Amino acid sequence: MLHRALEGIRVLDLSRILAGPWCTQNLADLGAEVVKVEHPQRGDDTRGWGPPYLDAADGSDARLSAYFISCNRGKQSVCIDYGQPEGVAQLLELARHADVLVENYKVGTLKRYGLDYASLKAINPRLIYLSITGFGQDGPMADKPGYDYVFQGMGGLMSYTGQPDGSPGAGPLRTGVAVVDVSTGMYATSAVLAALFQRQQTGEGQHLDIALLDVAVALNANQGANYLVSGKNPQRTGNAHPNCAPYEVFRCADGYLILAIGNDTQFARFCDVAGRPDLAQDPRYVTNSGRIEHLTELRKVLTALFPTRSRADWTSAFDAAGVPWGPIHTMEEVFAHPQVQHRQLRQVATHPVTGEVPMVRNPMLPANPQPLKPPPLLGEHTGVTAVAAIAAAR
């Protein structure tokens, strides 16, 4: 089972916020031992990113922010101040026995303490050292910091996300979750797993350089390819798809739904359900390319058509005819959905201080997973003897 795939792999996690911790949480979920190194007073910044917080079940002052919970389960927390010589010595000892180190400090920060890749490679040539930064390890902006929001804009994602000019609420819009950070964590996970596989063949570690800007540019996917092929900047189209039509949100008599037509056959079936088979024969709309070219006219027809029926009427007819559609759920509706419940996506871990900690199952792992380990309290596993034991465990 995948939850034991990385048993025996030790990860030293010097990362904070989301991209790095998302990667190391994946590694922990896959069975790696992850030691999260935190500042003795502040810890990971996201410990204070609330409300909401999960308060201690025993009535103490201990608490976990929901943000921190989302990306730090299954880890040990050790407080080490690497600004002090003894802290550097502890980290060096941990690195000597680690398989993977993950850090997301500004370029050059860890080098000042002798904790850069070149220094650690000298004592552990098998170490896989992952650096996550905003702009990468080199280039004219390598020394600059940056957050997810910055790269959603700089990487192009926000330029075509939002309502088009002339519409209510027009303007660039970010996604509702830190999609660049999360995607960076996933790319970083893949890179670490590939490096571990390569190390089996070569016996050597390596330095992995993952940049949020690089990921943001890659995330443009078909929109980036659209530009490279056509030379035209993608425009904001609200909820409409740039390459498929009709593929967007429509308002019914009592709510909204997503109509997701992916080919001409599906469009013909939709037209039959809608009582407008003539639309599928209209030369403007017979092909997907034609529907994209004449989307303004088609949208006017459909926008007037959908409010004539309830959402339940439409969706039951769509299901019967094989027309792709989707709901727009609140979080409450998401976790109450029978398919989500069947897939056991909501999981609960138990912490001795905070009690039950609700979390989301890692989609890489199957349903009916092994019991999850909760995220740690700040410094929960700290202590000279604990650090020494971790370092000497091999």
Rank of each mutant, 00 (worst) to 15 (best):
C79V: 01
L208Q: 13
P375D: 09
A245P: 11
H337N: 14
F151P: 05
F197D: 06
F68H: 08
Q344H: 04
C71S: 10
D58R: 01
D264H: 12
Q235I: 15
G262I: 08
V384L: 13
G20Q: 00
C71D: 01
Q223E: 15
A268M: 12
G146D: 09
P376H: 03
G262M: 09
H97S: 15
N26L: 04
D55M: 02
I261H: 10
V384I: 14
A191V: 14
A392N: 15
T315N: 12
G185S: 07
W325Y: 14
L219G: 00
L196N: 01
Q370E: 14
I128D: 07
F250G: 00
L295A: 07
A5N: 09
R63H: 10
D278W: 12
V384D: 14
A221N: 11
V340Y: 10
R4F: 01
Y147N: 14
P358G: 13
G83D: 09
F151L: 06
L91Y: 03
G275Q: 13
A32C: 02
E204G: 11
D165L: 03
V150K: 15
R394E: 13
T46M: 01
V357G: 08
P277K: 13
L173H: 13
V37T: 08
H342I: 06
Q201Y: 08
R63K: 11
A225Y: 10
S190R: 15
K373H: 15
Q206C: 12
V249Q: 10
A218F: 14
Q84T: 13
V102Q: 01
L298D: 07
T308S: 05
E293W: 07
G383T: 00
A389E: 15
